[in-house]
């Protein structure tokens, strides 16, 4: 089992003909993902790695049977492309681009909410369910393996580091969810925890968080009330100064909000084991599964 995407997910790639779109379509296919089409209005009829390019999203849905979309469209075109996907009936939408204006992200989220579409991102590395050969993202293929751990992360590379250590310790993953580093995102910690909590195959949950915002604090509240599976967390940004944006739009300590300590305290109080160093996560997961 897995969450959000599985072997039945039929993926369309918006922006398939760009260099990112082409490269990652190849990688997703290599992982075994069912990529059923791509979209580019001006390049309809072409193929990318044998995948047909359609002119519009409705064509990709009607003719290709797509039910999920991953978007590589640059930020200025993201709103239009997202609306097109949701309008065409896509139910899982993964937004890769960074720097989408926040007000436009809010419009996308509201439109998605009204149409029952799950959005992941923006500014995310995507999703991967190793046991289902399903990948909608830009993460390296070789660092994951099937297993009982659900991972949800705000950042890409740091979660790769942690997933790789878990895999090397024979702790594979059900699904890895990249939430994205922006201030407004479609699927957050609480959403992911809810999904992993209800998934029978997931036996332990790993959260990779960071400074800024109050998502980890809200997650702690949710865990306290609803989650009975072990949860292990690693949080980045302990050494970060206040008032500075650390790469991600959302990674900033504003006033006394979003500090490392506030998150550690909240999660610890909810029974979450917080690793002080990234490579300690695997050990904590192993202990919690005994």
């Amino acid at each position: 089992m897995a969450v959000i995407i599985n072997k039945d997910t039929r993926v369309v790639v918006q922006g398939i003909t760009g260099s990112q779109g082409q490269f990652h379509t190849g990688q997703m296919l290599a992982f075994g993902t069912q990529v059923v089409g791509g979209v580019n209005f001006d390049k309809a009829g072409q193929e990318v790695h044998g995948v047909p390019v359609y002119a519009t999203m409705s064509e990709a849905v009607e003719r290709g049977g797509a039910n999920a979309s991953i978007m590589f469209v640059p930020a200025p075109g993201a709103k239009d492309a997202a609306y097109e996907a949701i309008h065409a009936g896509i139910k899982v939408l993964v937004l890769i681009p960074e720097h989408v204006p926040t007000q436009e992200t809010m419009e996308i989220m509201q439109y998605a909410r009204q149409h029952g579409c799950r959005v992941v991102g923006p500014n995310t590395f995507g999703l991967i369910s190793p046991g289902e050969n399903a990948k909608m993202g830009i993460m390296p293929n070789h660092i994951y393996k099937p297993g009982p751990v659900g991972i949800v992360a705000r950042s890409g590379t740091l979660s790769y580091e942690i997933a790789f250590t878990l895999s090397n310790n024979n702790l594979g993953q059900t699904t890895v969810i990249g939430m994205g580093g922006d201030r407004v995102i479609g699927t957050n910690f609480v959403d992911a925890l809810e999904l992993f909590n209800a998934d029978d195959a997931t036996e332990a949950i790993v959260m990779v968080g960071e400074i800024g915002g109050i998502q980890e604090e809200l997650a702690a509240e949710y865990i306290k009330q609803h989650v009975r599976k072990p949860v292990v967390a690693y949080l980045a940004g302990k050494a970060a100064p206040a008032g500075k944006r650390m790469g991600h739009a959302g990674a900033i300590i504003e006033g006394n909000r979003g500090t490392y300590q506030s998150k550690v305290d909240a999660l610890s109080a909810a029974g979450v084991k917080v690793a002080a160093l990234p490579w300690e996560v695997a050990e904590l997961v192993k202990e919690s599964l005994k």
């Binding site: 950042s155 960071e210 400074i211 980045a236 160093l277």
Partner: peptide
């Protein structure tokens, strides 16, 4: 490489 990794690196270094 990566914002989270860069933050994590500062933390490990400070540690």
């Amino acid at each position: 490489n990566g914002a989270g990794m860069a933050m994590g690196t500062l933390d490990v270094l400070s540690h």
